[in-house]
Design a protein around this nucleic acid. Sequence first.
DNA 1: ATAGGTTCCGTACCATAGTACGGAGTCAAG
DNA 2: CTTGACTCCGTACTATGGTACGGAACCTAT
Lengths: 135, 135
Amino acid sequence: MSTMTIARLAREGGVGVETVRYYQRRGLLDLPDRPAGSGLRGNVRRYGDEDIRRLRFIRSAQAAGFTLEQIGELIELDATEDRSRARELANQRIEALDQKIAELQAARKSLHRLAHDCAHGKAGPCPILTAFDGD
Amino acid sequence: MSTMTIARLAREGGVGVETVRYYQRRGLLDLPDRPAGSGLRGNVRRYGDEDIRRLRFIRSAQAAGFTLEQIGELIELDATEDRSRARELANQRIEALDQKIAELQAARKSLHRLAHDCAHGKAGPCPILTAFDGD
DNA sequence: ATAGGTTCCGTACCATAGTACGGAGTCAAG
DNA sequence: CTTGACTCCGTACTATGGTACGGAACCTAT
């Protein structure tokens, strides 16, 4: 699988072709050389497993809450010896994740109570506007 | 606290004045009448506790992952008897939250492992690009 | 060798959720 | 009764992360 076209790469990464091109523009994915083949300006670009890995990393890092800009830094960092910066970014994100997770769990609790009150309440509208009170 | 200016309302809600005005434009917050006082075109608008509650609801609902558009629907729903729609929205969001929470917890785990490997690894760069492998 | 599907690339556009600007009006203290 | 802060309002701009468009080149199967 070492010579895919961009459509295949996109499919492997679970994104659209335009998204791959967008990541290339952002410098997150490499733009391979066009192999100077038959055509006048060269062949179509080819992608390999390394590109798939990179693309999947981008999606995972995004799911972890990193911005594309931070992901760019992570990718650059991966090639350096700067262990402390890498740890710093990871630990910052873990803290943010812990906060976010707690927030979402609190929200979940409120929504659960709302759904319950809403299902078993006597009459009238569900108490939506007060759903998050006391959290 | 039944006659605040917009700056006070914003402060109580933890947002900026421009954000309050934005929510008014979106129809999420009411635009109270300008009390026809001394001035030619009326006084400045005044806000009350109801507005604070509404604003805080908006922020909480946002934290729960609702979009502003959905929040608009929730606010309208609060005035109706449509219990099933309210429950539907709440339950949909709970499902999405459960997914999101699981995703963030997985990401947290990966980052934790990365930080650890990065701290105790022998030499060379941290294995950033492979941090999410095997999740 | 020709039709159709892809690729390439620049540029433009989109949604979401704000944030900023500027000028006129209004308010509150001194 | 002026000065400085705040309000009002429309309009424009921003950030983030894409998505769409269009024409030329290219590639593949018939």
